[in-house]
Simulated assay, not measured.
Amino acid sequence: MRFNRRRAALLATIPLAALSLTALPATAASAPAATVSRYVPLAGTSADATAARNAGCEEGKTGRGGVRILFFGTQEKNNVLRHPGTRADSSTPRVPAAQAAAFAAQWAEGFTSCRTGTAQAILALGVNNKSDGGVGGADAGRAWARVVEDAAKTVPAGPVSIAAAFDAEPVWSDRAWARGWVDAFTGATSRSLYAANSADGCPGYGSSSTSCSNGWSLADLHYVATGAAPSIRAIPQIYRTDGIQARQWAAISAWGARSGKGNVRFVGAMSQRKACEQRGGCSTTNNTPQAAWTQLYEELNSHSDTKVAELPYSTDMRWP
């Protein structure tokens, strides 16, 4: 989950004819005010603490509750993190994963000191499923559970609660790696895990296909977004302006209903409008937060087997 022109171009090649173009309802509930989620390329210096406090303070001043996700990038062997949006051959600094917990503590301090009103923030610490870091999925999941639990110990009781996030994308690992990560994480902690996933190559609602990219299936996407444990909540990437991603997630949820696994446990939608603006613009993946949320809400409520009563959260990605 990141701004990536190559992946945007790949998404744009998905044939519309292969995806259900179901008519949407005439009206929908109003989208909630969006929170700001961030990619966090840790520097491993005192600048991290300043950046964290400033980011938390900025969100506290909005007086807005809800989920905020901090994506720290890719887990590598020896329990270090590689910057978001980089490859294994990148020369960017690697920093100990423990520094993500320290960043969270400073973010919480900033939010608490600057907040207006009684806003409560859920701060979800996230990584992706890139499997090129020399660590197995299960080991990575257990290691991230320790980071999240350590962060929770350093954040005092108050307006900020600590959770986790996972950006699972089929093009980044085989399905076994991602399933192993989720199983290990949820086996090690009961803290909420926010699934901010993509559904690369999956069909839209109404298709007879169940296949997605890189050998994944609807069953795999459902598993890592809901099925693996009751602590998982889905807040998927709805970047595309043409609504394809909302239709893909409706298909995943409908698969769950048909198979007896249950609908996807949706809690909101993720957009990347700000990240696109910061990187010079996106041609087809720059939904506004309101548009992303509305696409998902309306698509789900267009079908009797995917209806949702509410989607309480909307969040928009940005770079620091």
Rank of each mutant, 00 (worst) to 15 (best):
236 P>C: 13
242 D>N: 15
262 G>V: 08
245 Q>R: 11
205 Y>N: 09
278 Q>D: 10
261 K>I: 07
260 G>P: 00
218 L>E: 02
265 R>F: 04
278 Q>E: 14
216 W>C: 05
280 G>V: 10
254 A>M: 03
219 A>Y: 01
226 T>D: 01
237 Q>S: 14
242 D>F: 07
239 Y>K: 12
267 V>R: 10
224 V>M: 03
231 S>N: 14
269 A>H: 06
269 A>D: 01
267 V>G: 06
204 G>H: 11
232 I>W: 03
259 S>T: 13
213 S>N: 06
247 R>Q: 15
224 V>W: 03
222 H>D: 02
276 C>V: 08
274 K>V: 15
236 P>H: 13
230 P>V: 12
274 K>W: 03
225 A>G: 12
241 T>M: 04
221 L>T: 07
239 Y>M: 12
232 I>G: 00
260 G>H: 09
245 Q>T: 12
281 G>C: 07
208 S>L: 08
207 S>P: 00
241 T>F: 00
252 I>L: 07
239 Y>T: 13
220 D>F: 02
220 D>V: 11
250 A>G: 03
228 A>N: 02
257 A>M: 07
203 P>Q: 09
255 W>R: 12
272 Q>W: 01
249 W>G: 09
255 W>P: 00
215 G>T: 10
273 R>I: 12
233 R>H: 11
215 G>W: 06
241 T>L: 09
212 C>F: 01
204 G>F: 04
266 F>D: 02
246 A>M: 07
206 G>W: 01
216 W>V: 11
230 P>A: 12
238 I>P: 00
270 M>Y: 08
250 A>F: 04
224 V>Y: 02
223 Y>D: 04
242 D>W: 05
277 E>V: 15
227 G>D: 02
277 E>G: 15
264 V>R: 05
260 G>M: 07
229 A>W: 02
235 I>L: 15
253 S>I: 06
235 I>R: 09
226 T>R: 13
278 Q>V: 13
219 A>T: 05
232 I>N: 03
231 S>K: 12
263 N>A: 15
270 M>I: 14
238 I>D: 00
251 A>Q: 09
242 D>K: 14
237 Q>V: 13
254 A>Y: 02
233 R>G: 01
276 C>H: 03
246 A>C: 02
259 S>R: 07
230 P>L: 11
214 N>T: 06
266 F>A: 11
217 S>D: 06
242 D>Q: 12
244 I>S: 14
246 A>L: 08
252 I>T: 14
236 P>M: 14
232 I>Q: 03
263 N>K: 15
274 K>Y: 09
214 N>K: 08
271 S>W: 01
278 Q>Y: 06
207 S>A: 15
264 V>W: 00
231 S>Q: 15
203 P>Y: 05
254 A>H: 10
261 K>Q: 14
236 P>Q: 14
241 T>D: 05
229 A>H: 13
275 A>L: 10
234 A>D: 08
222 H>P: 00
216 W>P: 00
261 K>W: 07
222 H>V: 08
205 Y>T: 11
216 W>A: 02
234 A>C: 14
235 I>V: 15
